[in-house]
């Protein structure tokens, strides 16, 4: 649905050149929720703004729905943009227009008949749960409600793609979750392709299918969220994941006083294995004891996963066999010490 080829964006003239994006390649499939995560200044904002050409790339190609955007004329670009919805961190609603008129805005741009607008906007108000608020002005709404208006407005022209520019960054955690839920619901109901940028791993983990980590204008890691999340390769990725895993921060390996001869291992469960009694089955067989030092059991989008740091106590060969058996049951075991 979206394909970026060798995307480069530089600012300034020859003397003082800053590079926001350098030769970036990316591809987002139809119906996918694709997340881009990065620190501020990494280029993620420039990246998403290049997709509807709010920012014109210096070099490279931007393909959306089989059309190369940088080659379009003004008129054609305006037309194409109607099929690319966008929501913003600061909502960017018309303060002088009611909720109804804000949602109707994209439709009035193309002179849609009044009755059609009425029906469409009312449907959208219902979809985002704002039926009661059509005649209010944005200033009378909460942040979450404003973003719902933003989403309804973005959907009014039946877009093929929805771009989310830090759409939940100005919201509190609870409101963030409700907006994410709404986005996921829309994605499933209309098979709408969603591309979002964020600096919160939590957002990626909640709704994204695939993720790309952007750093210094380039993508340093990319893949299915479960894979990137559970086996991060790049330091920046690791940093994002560690920062998000609140409970893990307090855990200090060096400080843990372990029984001599015990072995430390990180075990990762994925999918339904998370709920199986693999651990107890294996240790009963090998006669090894274990202590759980730290652990998380949660979900990534819909996939359950577990991460345990465990100290095994027992004879060396028994511990080795335990690890082998766990691996045989398709758990990922990393021996730390």
């Amino acid at each position: 649905m979206i394909e970026l080829k060798q995307l480069t964006k530089t600012y300034g003239d020859k003397k003082k050149k800053t590079t926001a994006l350098s030769g970036l390649n990316l591809s987002v499939g139809k119906g996918e929720i694709f997340g881009v995560i990065g620190h501020s200044g990494a280029g993620k904002s420039t990246l998403i703004r290049c997709i509807n050409l709010l920012e014109r790339p210096t070099e490279g190609e931007v393909w959306v729905g089989g059309v190369e955007l940088t080659r379009l004329g003004k008129r054609e670009l305006q037309e194409k943009r109607r099929k690319i919805g966008m929501i913003f961190q600061h909502f960017n609603l018309l303060s002088s227009a009611t909720v109804f008129d804000n949602i109707a805005f994209p439709l009035t741009l193309i002179h849609t008949p009044k009755q059609e607008i009425e029906k469409k906007v009312n449907d959208l108000l219902e979809l985002v749960g704002l039926q009661e608020h059509g005649s209010k002005y944005p200033a009378q709404l909460s942040g979450g409600q404003k973003q719902r208006v933003g989403i309804a407005r973005a959907l009014a022209s039946d877009p093929d793609v929805l771009l989310c520019d830090e759409a939940t960054s100005a919201l509190d955690p609870q409101t963030t979750d409700s907006i994410l839920k709404l986005l996921l619901d829309i994605n499933r109901r209309f098979n709408l392709t969603i591309m979002l940028i964020t600096h919160e791993m939590h957002v990626i983990q909640s709704i994204c299918d695939r993720v790309a980590v952007i750093h210094a204008g380039g993508i340093v890691e990319e893949g299915p969220v479960t894979e990137v999340f559970l086996k991060p390769q790049h330091p920046v990725t690791k940093e994002f994941i560690e920062r998000d895993a609140r409970g893990e921060e307090g855990f200090n390996l060096a400080a843990a006083s372990l029984a001599s001869g015990s072995r430390l291992a990180r075990i990762t469960f994925l999918g339904t294995k998370t709920y199986e009694s693999i651990m107890s089955q294996v240790v009963r067989e090998t006669g090894v004891n274990f202590a759980i030092l730290q652990g998380t059991i949660s979900t990534i989008k819909d996939t359950p996963y577990g991460k345990l740091t465990v100290a095994f106590e027992g004879k060396d060969e028994d511990v080795k066999r335990t690890i082998e058996l766990l691996r045989q049951r398709e758990l990922d075991v990393e021996v730390v010490k």
């Binding site: 709010l54 966008m86 960017n92 303060s95």
Partner: peptide, 12 residues
Amino acid sequence: GVIEASQAMGAT
């Protein structure tokens, strides 16, 4: 931002 949003929606 509001101006940009309207440009993103294809306003002339």
